[in-house]
Design a binder for these strands. Structure first.
Lengths: 309, 309
DNA sequence: GCTTCGCCTTTAGCACCACTTAAGTATGCC
DNA sequence: GGCATACTTAAGTGGTGCTAAAGGCGAAGC
């Protein structure tokens, strides 16, 4: 017959106090309740667990075995409770984060570092992916939080996601260090009408960004190269193949042989966003990480680093 | 709040089957029951254990912790069940036995050996003591079974004990190897009227035995020495200090320099008894040991050993 | 020998709770 | 839109774990 854990614990109390009356008092029961539970336990066990005599009871071998295991189970429960408290108190648990590559080299490292310092017990894992991958990871629950980005003409509007706006990442121009514009601090779009351009491959929105800006300025840009990431784009710019529009956050690792020029408000900014699945209450870890990201995104030092270099 | 083990196991089932419906089917419950139990569990835990979404549920960190510990507790229960089965099947458990010294050197070793062969998992312990000590040990439950003895005029009549008669242990006479009677096989009491006697100290019943036998034969014995045990008595007999009446079982370790003479039915036998506390159902181990002792006591080889040597 | 006390048991009854039934909500797929 | 899947909610019921009360039993004390 199946053993009932509650009954085991009643017997453990009897064992501990040496009598049913003692156990009853300790448990806040009447003696009768204890007696009945012990009797049912004996039916489950298939043999007596107590020897009754006029001055209390003594445990049989079977009773001792039961009491011992009940203690072990009790310990399991306490350890579980402790573990749950750890998770609630951000001393344990896990948080899985998704990010896109250029946030991965600026905003995210700061947040990860601070989170790890604050909560060393929480297992933090980060996966980097492109935008489409990130959305998949969110929806398949491979990550709890993801950093995303969008431009004004292609807003992420997924009703399944709860989105927090972290910061605006302005678009800058990069040119080779040997380019005639290399010593300028800023430039106006119409000045760039004759430049060959480096854009991102695969219809990356930075291409759209260029087309729109050029159109507003009244020219059609010449595309000289389609790069797979911003590092490659920088390299092409460096050797003078063309100039490129890039988000400031993508310039964390700036090469010596390229220069950054401000485009001011002539070109739309990229929004950097934090997303989580809507419809689920965020865990403590998610909330805390969200707070940290908002704080860090709001601090002015984040973008200054890339402009001043 | 206190964690209910049953609920933990429900969650473990959910974890195992990946959905409440799966768990419900496995447990023989309705989905509704599982849902309600999980909800109550979350109240106990203080945080969500599941994330619900349209295609089932996934565990939170807290849920995983709960499910893991539930598995551990399940294992504890299985191990307890196995241990209880071992105890019931005499593959585990313990048996504590009390004995008096002369049974300890004959009847008991055989029984102990056979019991240990049959049930190597049962922890068998034997305490040797005098009669009064044995009764105390029984009543204080320091032993479950005890070997006792009595004579016809001082029967053990304790209503708290359940007594089994194992065998009759005849009384023999021992004399020095140099004694005139040394080559006889038997002797009649009246022939011993002039002998000095060795008896046991502290009013041991063997003294009473001598007095009664002598009185029947019409003489008053001369007491030459009061020995503390039968080994000492043998030693005194060996050096010719006197002769002694001893139970056959006490002659397991017979010295070279003493001789045993039969007294036949002239002198009352000692009864050897097995006692357990009345009013408690004997355990399997007690029953089996009882059987073994009855068998061994009934086999003719037991006393032959000491008479033939 | 009687009561008294401590401890466990038994019986009856009540209250709670874990379950079922049934209806409802949300989401995804044809 | 409608159906299917999966969980939730509300109401109702049976089982069971508890209390209360009475009782038995052995030990201790007068």
């Amino acid at each position: 017959m199946t053993l009932d854990v509650h009954r085991l614990r009643v017997l453990a109390a009897v064992a501990q106090h040496g009598s049913m009356s003692g156990a009853a008092e300790a448990l806040g029961y009447t003696v009768s309740a204890v007696s009945q539970q012990v009797r049912k336990l004996e039916a489950e066990v298939g043999q007596p667990v107590l020897e009754r005599h006029s001055r209390g009871v003594t445990l049989t071998d079977a009773g001792r075995a039961v009491a011992e295991h009940a203690e072990l189970i009790d310990r399991q429960l306490h350890s579980l409770r402790a573990r749950l408290d750890d998770i609630a108190g951000l001393r344990a648990g896990s948080l899985r984060l998704g990010t896109f590559p250029t946030a991965g080299s600026s905003l995210l490292p700061l947040a990860v570092t601070r989170f790890r310092q604050e909560h060393p017990g929480v297992h933090l894992s980060v996966s980097s992916s492109r935008l489409r991958g990130l959305l998949n990871m969110l929806e398949s629950r491979a990550v709890e939080l993801a950093l995303l980005w969008d431009y004004s003409w292609s807003r992420i509007a997924n009703p399944g996601l709860k989105i927090t706006h972290l910061l605006d990442d302005p678009t800058a121009l990069i040119v080779s260090a040997t380019h005639p514009l290399a010593d300028r601090r800023a430039v106006r779009i119409p000045e760039l009408a004759e430049e060959p351009w480096i854009i991102r491959a695969d219809g990356h929105p930075v291409g759209e960004l260029l087309l729109r800006s050029a159109h507003t300025a009244g020219f059609r840009p010449t595309i000289a190269f389609e790069a797979n990431d911003y590092q490659e784009a920088q390299a092409m710019v460096a050797v003078g193949l063309g100039v490129a529009m890039v988000p400031r956050l993508a310039l964390a690792g700036l090469r010596d042989d390229v220069r950054v020029l401000s485009l001011g408000a002539q070109v739309p900014s990229r929004r950097v966003l934090l997303a989580r699945l809507a419809g689920r209450r965020p865990t403590e870890a998610e909330s805390r990480m969200g707070q940290l990201l908002v704080e860090i995104a709001g601090s002015p030092s984040l973008l200054r680093g890339s402009t001043s270099s």
